[in-house]
């Protein structure tokens, strides 16, 4: 397919669907008159689709500071509870993410958690921002599934039968990857440049110019989340780590062990949260 056409079509996507069970829980949270912005924020931060909606909104030119805000909590303060409430009321509900690729949501959440843990280990000043990048790194898969459902199913099939990675199958069928489509939509929605860049290069972190460290962190977080088998990114085996990124991060075996320990704890908490949704 022609990348220009693809880009034009993907950029036309205005809204992303979210998962009904999350939405249900969120509405319960938000309809509670005593709810605080922090509570709503924690909630939104656990869902890539809700997060990207909120960021899209706060970075829209209507508010007058496009491309500035990448933290959910700050976005909520600037939007206000009423707008957030309305934003969520207007959410059209599909089950695309869950149905087309079961586990992608958990994979995203896992990567967000791992990214935050690694960022802290590396003493990066804004771990929450990297966490958001982790949450949204595969948003390109969602938009591709949304816009090209059949073709993407073919990608999944191709990856399975030829034992390829999803990203390789994407390239053979679309000529572009979810890293491309994700960065396009992020740019289109005026996300901060740092987010766009991390999404764009999360599979090729050494190409990132202005944020090599942050991109390397999300790259490794993605990989570590897969390597412990949390969630499902679409791939049944772990891709190789980018050597330059690994060297840049310079983690010792002990660091790595700490990171896995913290991931274990955080993941079992996240699981508790996910299960809470089913009720």
């Amino acid at each position: 397919m022609d990348p220009k056409l693809l880009r034009a079509q993907i950029e036309r996507i205005d809204t992303l669907p979210t998962i009904p069970s999350v939405l249900k829980k969120l509405l319960a949270v938000i309809e509670n008159p005593k709810v605080s912005l922090t509570e709503v924020g924690n909630f939104i931060q656990s869902d890539p689709v809700l997060t990207s909606r909120v960021l899209k909104m706060v970075n829209s030119p209507i508010y007058g500071f496009p491309g500035r805000i990448s933290a959910v909590q700050q976005a909520l303060i600037l939007l206000g509870l009423n707008v957030v409430r309305g934003l969520l009321l207007g959410v059209s509900v599909f089950e695309v993410m869950q149905k087309s690729m079961v586990g992608l949501w958990e994979h995203s959440l896992g990567c967000a958690i791992a990214a935050r843990i690694i960022a802290k280990k590396k003493n990066i000043s804004e771990p929450e921002e990297i966490s958001i990048a982790g949450l949204l790194h595969d948003i390109g898969k969602v938009v591709m599934i949304l816009r090209y459902k059949e073709e993407y199913e073919e990608v999944i099939k191709e990856a399975e039968t030829k034992d390829l990675l999803i990203i390789e199958a994407e390239k053979s069928i679309f000529d572009i990857t979810h890293a491309d489509s994700g960065s396009w939509i992020a740019k289109r929605w005026n996300f901060p440049q740092s987010l766009v860049e991390i999404i764009e290069y999360h599979h090729k972190p050494s190409l990132s110019r202005s944020l090599p460290m942050q991109t390397a962190i999300v790259h490794l977080a993605d990989l570590l989340t897969r390597s412990v088998g949390f969630g499902f990114s679409g791939d049944n085996h772990v891709p190789a780590v980018n050597p330059a990124a690994w060297e840049l991060l310079n983690l010792s075996d002990a660091d790595l062990r700490d990171i896995f320990d913290e991931m274990d704890d955080a993941f079992s908490e996240a699981e508790a949260f996910l299960i809470g949704d089913e009720s």
């Binding site: 570590l224 412990v228 085996h237 772990v238 190789a240 780590v241 790595l256 062990r257 896995f260």
Partner: peptide
């Protein structure tokens, strides 16, 4: 083993795998 079947030998992947195995 299954997860690392294709990349377990690659540079640095052996380290990650080794740590996970030990855990």
């Amino acid at each position: 083993e299954m997860r690392f079947r294709k990349t377990g030998q690659e540079k640095y992947m052996d380290t990650i795998k080794k740590v996970l195995k030990a855990r």
